[in-house]
Design a protein around this nucleic acid. Sequence first.
RNA 1: GGGCCCGUAGCUCAGCUGGAUAGAGCAACGGACUUCUAAUCCGUAGGUCGGAGGUUCGAAUCCUCCCGGGCCCGCCA
Length: 567
Amino acid sequence: MKEFVRERVKAVLRELYGEAVNQSVERASFEKPKRKEFGDLATNVAFLLARDLRKSPKQIAEELANKLRSFKEFEKVEVAGGGFINFTFSQELYSQLLREVVETDFFISNIGKGERVLLEYVSANPTGPLHVGHGRGAVVGDVLYRIMKLTGYKPEREFYINDAGRQIKLLGLSIFLKAVEASGGNPKETLKELISSGVIGSDAVDEKEECRDCYKGEYIKELAVKLLSKRRDILSVPPKNAIEICAEFGKEELLKEIESDLKELRVEFDNWFSEKSLYESGKVEKVLEILKGKGFLYEKEGALWLKTTLFGDDKDRVVRRSNGEYTYFASDIAYHYDKIERGYDRGIDIWGADHHGYIQRVKAAIQALGKDPDWLEVVLIQMVKLFKEGKEVKMSKRAGNFVTLRWLMEEVGVDAVRFFFLLKRHDTPLDFDLDLAISTKSENPVYYVQYAHARLCSILDKAEERGFKPSKENLNLLSSEEERELILRSYMLRYELQEAALKREPHRLTYYLIELASALHRFYNKHRVVNEENKELTESRLFLIEGIRRVIEIGLGILNVNAPRRM
RNA sequence: GGGCCCGUAGCUCAGCUGGAUAGAGCAACGGACUUCUAAUCCGUAGGUCGGAGGUUCGAAUCCUCCCGGGCCCGCCA
């Protein structure tokens, strides 16, 4: 519909001023005006042309409007506000839009032009349960994926498993010490022995003679107990091996748990990419070789550094520590290099906002490898805080210092979790009101939208019982303000998806649905659909009802939230 | 000290590649159920868009400075 108006404007411009002005049309906005007196669609194209044509915006707008009035699709074309052109659509055009809403895939478009995009999200370390922050990133990624798919991109979803390096060793040690404790041993003594026998470094112990960076929380103990029941001999194998076994076991168990949590949240991936595989296939060494060949690596104090400062980073970064271990950064360079090699046109990483300092150095590395740093886009997800009865919920029994995603899902249900995570733009902190999320009152936006869907279904059912069925024969009867509003809004799904894809802002869709639901409820309270006296109007309205129902169903489907027929 | 994000109604936030009289929900107040789901709707009230400059036909939106808040800045991930 916007395309339609744009084409008409272009044609008229060409006729009036020649080909040269076409680029202004591409930059011009075609938006639904804020105020209804301004019609159905407005454009600022005259303002943009004013300089080139050396005429006032108003004069240009008038000239355009005069020509545009001849199209029968426009009931009115008016100039206002110093140069805006306001279009009011004809009833016939409205009918056509509604038919498209009901009968076509009008919401699918191709602004992505087949661009291959790799979306990476969640990518939690398999060293603990998922927390609510992971959940927010997961939902943002999942919904963005579906939006991009419908707008002509070719997105794929990937989870990067950090299954190598220090944090996995720490996981092993954490479980091992709990296993010692659960078997009646003294973890402090064990730590000392491990250090004196050289299995772990002396820096692994803090002032209280406890493991410095070990994972805490009940789940470590659960894992230790579970492992003990499977392998009673774990404490009698050499400690170095035992810790490795613990690490491997813990990682496998936690990964299973992460997968099942995500499945519960209805979040899926096309590919699970293992960090470890980058080491095993030699890709980490290979990529460092390349960087070395370009002269971007140097040794200092026994460590290996990448000159990221050459590419705008604050300081150079270590890729291999003096003890020979690679840093997380090293495998991340290899990982992004691998993504690029796999042929994606663009990578979008969804990270927690606390990682923002990391963006610069990864982009620097990409540039050092001779690629465009803009290949990578990073979407930052701000913190989630939970509130119950006005107080912040901070800890979970099981995970220790954070609240698990699973707990949240059990508390408020998956529909509410998903919807609420998209209630704010992803880069603003989210205060999640648990009481609101389980409320079945109008104040709860999930219920508000779902209720609209149930209400629509109910109307369709009732009408069917009385022998009415949707008909597109007399759509011109749908001429009230509320009906025209609903038709226009329904069709706008197409543009909301485009906007959301372009800006990588899936929350726009939830706002759209709330507004559409609101328009529907307003209509419902003012007009009766089923009217025994007027079959034509009833059946036309049923057609409209079916259209709105379809749009809400599609919208909720993209959010992966249920659209119930009854509530 | 440096970097990133944020500051919009009493509260929680939309709107930000500049566009017309700045929006929504909640809370407050007043109304609407013999009618397809009142889990709804209508109305009233509520604002120097943190502040000051600048850019221009036009600024909540872009630029500079300042104030306030959050996060990050290790041979951590």
